[in-house]
């Protein structure tokens, strides 16, 4: 604001308008809400993480003890971190690649394109609760359709939801199903917006389909790639609904599925903070640790986007 005060003369009013007053008016709602409902809770969680508190009674200041506990004794936290990253790695990259490949094969479809795009969006808009229930039904060991088909073909049914490795695969499969169509539709949209002239020029130069794809289509899709990578990172790191809904359905439900193999960071956090032993202080410490993990990954993401920014200014 000092800066604007220094400017003098008639111009000052207008300058002030456009560099302080209006920006402030337009930015303020976001900033206020951001501070009040997003930033403040996180800061307050950090404050809570230095305490031992179950939500009732006095908060007891314990310093960094919660953090020490996480790093020395809490193997479950690290397990949930590993699970999340593993689930992320085995599901999102294949979903992106498959989505891209299908889109590449299909992008010269003209008729019914919007229809196909909408249809392939459906998994993405289906409520996670429903997806959890349906997959539970498909993969049940004794009555599920998948095992009945396997048995019908003469094989032996698998314990999809009771075996740690298989349970992770089911979750990954669920993510694949949810996102492939979505990514495909996005890529399809991106590809069709690339000017046909470029392709014509490439054909004249004698470039084959594969080369055209790698040296023209893919680079031009960089913005959409970044968009997809960033949004799937956000989604993947927050994974909670689907595993929780699949493995937390009955009276003897197990937190995190078989051997806690599907316990994601968020589920662990939710369980620690609100589960059978309510420890809001400790839960907050877990949240702060997740925050740091995500921050590190975000900075990498930011660099990616920063790269894009520079490119544009060139």
């Amino acid at each position: 604001m000092n800066h604007s005060m220094k400017t003098t003369g008639k111009k000052r009013g207008k300058h002030w308008d456009y560099s302080v007053k209006y920006p402030l008016i337009f930015v303020l709602p976001f900033c206020i809400c951001f501070f009040a409902f997003n930033l403040f809770p996180i800061i307050y969680s950090f404050f809570l993480s230095l305490h031992d508190w179950s939500g009732v009674g006095e908060k007891k200041y314990v310093g960094l003890q919660n953090y020490i506990m996480i790093f020395t004794r809490d193997k479950i936290f690290f397990k949930s971190l590993r699970n999340t990253l593993y689930l992320l790695l085995i599901s999102f990259p294949p979903a992106i690649i498959i989505g891209l490949l299908i889109a590449a094969f299909l992008f010269n479809i003209k008729r019914l394109r919007t229809f196909f795009q909408t249809v392939n969006f459906l998994p993405y808009i289906t409520t996670p609760v429903a997806i959890g229930l349906i997959f539970l039904f498909l993969f049940d060991r004794n009555t599920g359709i998948v095992n009945r088909l396997i048995e019908g073909a003469g094989g032996e049914g698998l314990n999809w939801l009771g075996n740690p490795g298989l349970a992770q695969l089911v979750i990954a499969f669920m993510i694949l199903w949810k996102y492939i169509g979505y990514y495909m539709a996005l890529y399809l949209a991106g590809m069709t917006s690339i000017s046909q002239d470029i392709y014509d020029a490439a054909r004249v130069d004698g470039a084959g389909a594969v080369r055209t794809f790698f040296s023209i289509t893919l680079p031009l899709l960089k913005p959409i790639n970044i968009f997809i990578i960033v949004t799937s990172l956000i989604g993947g790191l927050q994974l909670f609904d689907e595993p929780n809904l699949m493995f937390n359905v009955s009276t003897t439900s197990i937190i995190g599925g078989p051997k806690r193999s599907c316990l994601t960071m968020f589920w662990n956090f939710y369980d620690v903070a609100f589960g059978s032993t309510a420890r809001l202080g400790y839960g907050s410490a877990v949240a702060v640790c997740i925050f740091i993990v995500i921050l590190i990954i975000s900075v990498i993401g930011l660099c990616l986007m920063g790269g894009k920014e520079e490119r544009k200014h060139e």
Binding site: R141, N142, L161
Partner: peptide, 9 residues
């Protein structure tokens, strides 16, 4: 048998 107790199945 191998049913998960309490599930609809």
């Amino acid at each position: 048998d191998t049913f998960q107790n309490g599930t609809p199945q």
